[in-house]
């Protein structure tokens, strides 16, 4: 692995951490992207507009970073079936399990939450197993 790649990963990661902790420091919320997305669709209670603002930032950010040559992937080399089935399972699984890579994997681990440690270990292991099966066994 190249030194540049590691530095770029660490800097990108630090920005993710900074965005996540500032949502806690200013809005008092866990930066769980699956929970925020579902909440934006289902929670009609007043005071939920922060979710829309947060999601807007997430969607717009790559348009800004592309000015510095950090861009989105040009093509997705996966079948439509993988993406549709994958998307459905990601949607259901993150709701049932109360979190994804951001809520459990970053915020939860940093809070030393036992639930998040268990969830992160489980989704990492099953994801690796799924890749092992689809790439090396089928």
């Amino acid at each position: 692995m190249q030194y540049d790649t590691i530095v770029q990963a660490l800097i990108g990661g630090a920005l993710i951490g900074l965005g996540a902790i500032s949502l806690m420091l200013f809005n008092g919320r866990i930066a769980g992207i699956s929970g925020i997305t579902a909440g934006a669709m289902t929670d009609r209670i007043k005071g939920g507009a922060w979710r829309i603002a947060f999601l807007a930032g997430l969607v717009v950010a790559p348009l800004i970073t592309s000015a510095a040559q950090f861009s989105l992937p040009q093509s997705i080399d996966l079948s439509l079936t993988q993406l549709v089935v994958g998307g459905l399972l990601v949607g259901i699984g993150t709701q049932l399990g109360s979190g994804c890579t951001s809520g459990h994997g970053i915020c939860g681990l940093a809070r030393f939450s036992t639930r998040s440690v268990i969830a992160t270990a489980l989704f990492m292991a099953t994801a690796a197993l799924t890749v092992a099966v689809t790439r090396h066994m089928l």
Partner: peptide
């Protein structure tokens, strides 16, 4: 929590995409 994390893991392994990167890719 256990069943949800397992289902999410399978979906993540199939697509390589979790919610944050999925939304960030929309543009």
């Amino acid at each position: 929590l256990v069943v949800g994390a397992i289902l999410f893991g399978i979906g993540w392994g199939l697509s390589g995409i979790c919610p944050g990167p999925g939304l960030a890719n929309l543009s």
